[in-house]
Design a protein around this nucleic acid. Structure first.
Length: 219
DNA sequence: GACCAGGCACATC
DNA sequence: GATGTGCATGGT
């Protein structure tokens, strides 16, 4: 049973209010956060970004200059710090080589072409790419993450095996193309995911409980 | 102490 | 093409 997605969104909006995402001031900070939060709680990412700020490392040029081991040490609290240091450098080098370090120039590319391009960067997968495009670039693409998968499968809206692009397509075909809506809807899903739709769900108090396939708690 | 978190790349079958 | 594994910190 497919719900009215806009009423799902309004329910979350009523509950949480506008989320004002992404939690980060500049496009490059948002991109750094998108890489650092891969399979990682945001709380840990905050510490890593605070370290980067304290060392004036929140720019592509700075990320290119710094030694990879030193960078890894700064982002240690976000976990996977060796891999993520390499990924941050990969993106910074990509930006420098292809757009002379200009994010504005990068985001002027056609959406689909740019998406394919950044997916070629080592360490940038579908979710990270789409988070960059939507939240740093303001481009109309819907972001899917762990919580999105849980929300759509646990309510029986999509099959458990639905992959990233199936879920993404399902949202975009059932919603008006609206950047502000894409932005806040994903933020709402993360909010409800963090609070209720975790590995151990708490459906009783969840604002989306009325959208469950049958009354009761997800088993 | 086990389990989990706003993924992704790579190996192996 | 599907499935398994390494990467790592900090919170519950």
């Amino acid at each position: 049973m497919v719900p009215d997605l806009l009423s799902v969104y309004r329910t979350l909006l009523d509950y949480y209010g506008h989320r004002n995402w992404w939690p980060g001031q500049t496009p490059i900070e948002i991109i750094i956060g998108a890489i650092l939060t891969q399979n990682t709680a945001w709380k840990n990412v905050e510490r890593a970004i605070a370290n980067l700020k304290a060392h004036k490392m929140v720019s592509a040029r700075a990320l290119i200059r710094i030694d990879e081991k030193d960078l890894a040490e700064l982002i240690r609290p976000s976990g996977y710090y060796n891999i993520k240091a390499r990924r941050l450098k990969s993106f910074a080098n990509f930006l420098e080589q292809n757009y002379r370090g200009s994010l504005a120039a990068m985001f002027r590319q056609p959406l689909e072409r740019l998406r394919q391009e950044i997916l070629q960067i080592n360490g940038i997968g579908p979710e990270t790419a789409d988070s960059i495009l939507l939240y740093a670039g303001g481009l109309p693409i819907f972001v899917v993450d762990l919580y999105t998968h849980r929300v759509v499968t646990r309510h029986g809206w999509l099959n458990e095996k639905a992959d990233y692009h199936e879920i993404q397509r399902w949202f975009t075909t059932n919603l008006p193309e609206d950047i502000g809506l894409y932005n806040d809807f994903h933020a709402q899903i993360v909010a409800v995911g963090n609070e209720f739709c975790r590995a151990k769900p708490r459906c009783e108090d969840c604002p989306l409980r009325d959208f469950l396939p049958r009354k009761g708690v997800f088993a």
